[in-house]
């Protein structure tokens, strides 16, 4: 009798727990990259509220009765702390590497692209610079990458937009890595050098 009472109390809780654990497995499989734990991820969501406004014919309206539209970009630096950064490098050292995981999820069924834009010179507070040519970028496939990587070889960074990736014609969800590699310049003046990288997701 006591056992029965115990089961009456605990079975629903156990079922709830099992469901929650199962939910976690599903979320994890959907959201985390294969290779490494994700230190940080961020993105933006946009949803059209009134696509049928007078005079507007939007490309998604025909599918409004279907599943919610998905078109998202996440950029996850694999370094700790989560950023593209190079620490304590000196002339003559081996090059330092940083990897960034880029993941795109889309159910639009249309081709899309990812651009990289180095937004400023890599400079310290005194205006001293590390030439961007001392940092190379290279796009690397992951297992199952479907789209077209546009920087297959190590290529010096430059300011402005550079096309990193174009999806397959079906606009499949996809992911790839970018490897950044810094070689310290011979005339390096020790200091803190900062710049910025802007990644852009847009439809073709």
């Amino acid at each position: 009798m006591t056992m029965l009472k115990a089961y009456r109390i605990n079975i629903p809780i156990l079922i709830l727990a099992a469901v929650m654990v199962f939910s976690r497995c599903s979320f994890a499989a959907d959201t985390l990259p294969d290779d490494n734990a994700a230190p940080e991820a961020s993105a933006v969501a946009i949803e059209e509220v009134s696509p049928a406004a007078a005079g507007i014919a939007d490309s998604n309206s025909n599918k409004s009765a279907q599943a919610e539209h998905v078109f998202e970009l996440s950029v996850i630096a694999q370094n700790q702390p989560s950023s593209v950064n190079f620490v304590n490098f000196n002339p003559g050292d081996s090059p330092q590497s940083n990897e960034v995981l880029v993941e795109i999820k889309s159910n639009l069924g249309r081709q899309y692209q990812v651009l990289q834009n180095v937004t400023s010179r890599l400079a310290n507070i005194d205006g001293q610079r590390i030439p961007l040519k001392n940092i190379t970028a290279q796009t690397l496939p992951l297992s199952g990458t479907k789209g077209f990587l546009k920087i297959p070889d190590k290529t010096p960074l430059k300011r402005g937009h550079v096309l990193l990736y174009i999806s397959d014609l079906e606009g499949s969800s996809d992911k790839f890595k970018i490897n950044y590699e810094l070689t310290a310049p011979e005339n390096l003046i020790p200091g803190n050098y900062l710049s910025g990288i802007l990644y852009t997701l847009s439809e073709i």
């Binding site: 961020s42 993105a43 933006v44 946009i46 078109f71 998202e72 970009l73 996440s74 950029v75 630096a77 950023s83 593209v84 950064n85 190079f86 620490v87 304590n88 490098f89 000196n90 960034v100 180095v118 937004t119 890599l122 590390i130 940092i135 810094l182 310290a184 390096l188 020790p190 200091g191 803190n192 050098y193 900062l194 710049s195 910025g196 990288i197 802007l198 990644y199 852009t200 997701l201 847009s202 439809e203």
Partner: peptide, 14 residues
């Protein structure tokens, strides 16, 4: 001391 090179990372969608 030493040297550090870091990048702010921003993302945008169009």
């Amino acid at each position: 001391s030493g040297s550090y090179a870091g990048f702010d990372i921003n993302i945008r969608v169009a």
